[in-house]
Design a protein around this nucleic acid. Structure first.
Length: 344
DNA sequence: AAACCGTGGTA
DNA sequence: TTACCAAGGTT
């Protein structure tokens, strides 16, 4: 096994020769742009992020622009990207930076990590890429490279495994050229040391890789234990009146928090008396299946749905179905957007 | 510790 | 087709 120093040199040399250097967030040290890219890239692939990243920056060029925006418009620009708490936390953090840091992004890794939505790895990435701090990262790419290279077994969701991976990440991270090293590790994991069919013949670490030597590539890194996904069944009420569609804003926490949705009823609840069934469908989340039966409601007697209730959970929002969401800056979950499109 | 939180591509 | 999962963080 080589020294940390040798490991670093091989990884950085690989990056200098073969790494990706022209993604939209490369070539900048603007912490706002680095931060935005890191958040969007959480559990999301590069190709999918790029158009969202560019549209977001076009609308909010600076962190103060973002801080001053409405939550509906922020969610609108995140619609379809998923994991919407990222957008809510991003907006929240922008307001904190604008107010508590006079609009200047903090450089101290601990202050960065204290912002909502930024964990240890994302804080390390921002601090290294923007401010040349010697901070380590441990995203999915780095986890995969380290687990295979050093034979670190077990699922990273287990705290002991995660601790072991962090220890190796810290040990291997150089105090100089940290940004380049971190970028190189991400790139190596994303392009060469992929989950399936890694390109070991292109890997600068292949000579000493534990997983390759032991023929354990498919076993490392350890997989998350699988469990059966439950199914939930709901009605969505499609209430159209005067060319407008009734939507309500979901509460800030929970699934699709802060996004606008058709009024939703559990299938045990009483439903309107006059309706027409539209085509049902199943929306698959990572942790459960949602079976949706849309009901085109003809008459709203005895449902109470059209009345904003005491707690204001059913705020009324009528918008022009012909204009769709394109001219209406609100957040819409993908299946809501799809159903709206099918109505016009 | 383990559940929660989206979506679309891939095999 | 189903199952897995991609630059994680919060509770």
């Amino acid at each position: 096994m080589w020294s940390a120093n040798s490991f670093q040199r091989k990884v950085i040399e690989y990056y200098r020769q073969h790494g990706r250097k022209h993604l939209p967030w490369h070539g900048t040290k603007d912490p706002y742009r680095i931060w935005l890219s890191e958040i969007m890239l959480q559990q999301t692939q590069v190709a999918r992020v790029i158009p969202y990243y560019e549209a977001f920056l076009e609308r909010f060029p600076t962190i103060v622009d973002l801080a001053e925006a409405s939550s509906d418009e922020v969610m609108h620009l995140w619609s379809g990207l998923g994991y919407y708490s990222r957008a809510r936390n991003l907006h929240k953090a922008a307001k904190i930076v604008a107010k508590d840091f006079a609009g200047t992004f903090p450089q101290d890794p601990e202050e960065i990590e204290a912002l909502p939505g930024i964990g240890r790895s994302t804080a390390g990435a921002i601090a290294a890429f923007s401010f040349d701090k010697p901070t380590a990262i441990l995203d999915g790419n780095v986890k995969r490279v380290l687990a295979r290279c050093y034979g670190i077994e077990g699922w990273a969701g287990k705290s002991a495994v995660l601790k072991s991976l962090w220890a190796k990440a810290e040990k291997n991270t150089p105090s100089q050229n940290t940004a380049q090293y971190n970028q190189a590790m991400m790139d190596l994991g994303a392009v060469v040391c992929t989950r399936s069919k890694p390109k070991c013949e292109q890997c600068p670490l292949a000579k000493e890789c534990y997983a390759l030597k032991q023929d354990m590539i498919s076993e490392l890194p350890g997989k998350k234990p699988k469990k059966t996904r439950p199914k939930r069944s709901v009605y969505w009420l499609v209430c159209i009146d005067n060319n407008q569609v009734l939507l309500h804003k979901r509460p800030p926490s929970g699934i699709w928090g802060g996004l606008w949705c058709f009024p939703e009823l559990d299938q045990t609840a009483p439903i309107p008396e006059h309706y027409e069934q539209l085509s049902s469908f199943v929306h698959k989340f990572s942790h459960y299946d949602l079976e949706v039966q849309p009901l085109l409601v003809k008459k709203l007697s005895k449902t109470g749905i059209m009345e904003p209730n005491e707690t204001d959970r059913f705020a009324l929002n009528l918008f022009d179905k012909k204009k769709q969401a394109k001219t209406t800056a609100i957040g819409l979950p993908t299946p809501v957007s799809n159903l709206l499109a099918s109505l016009s």
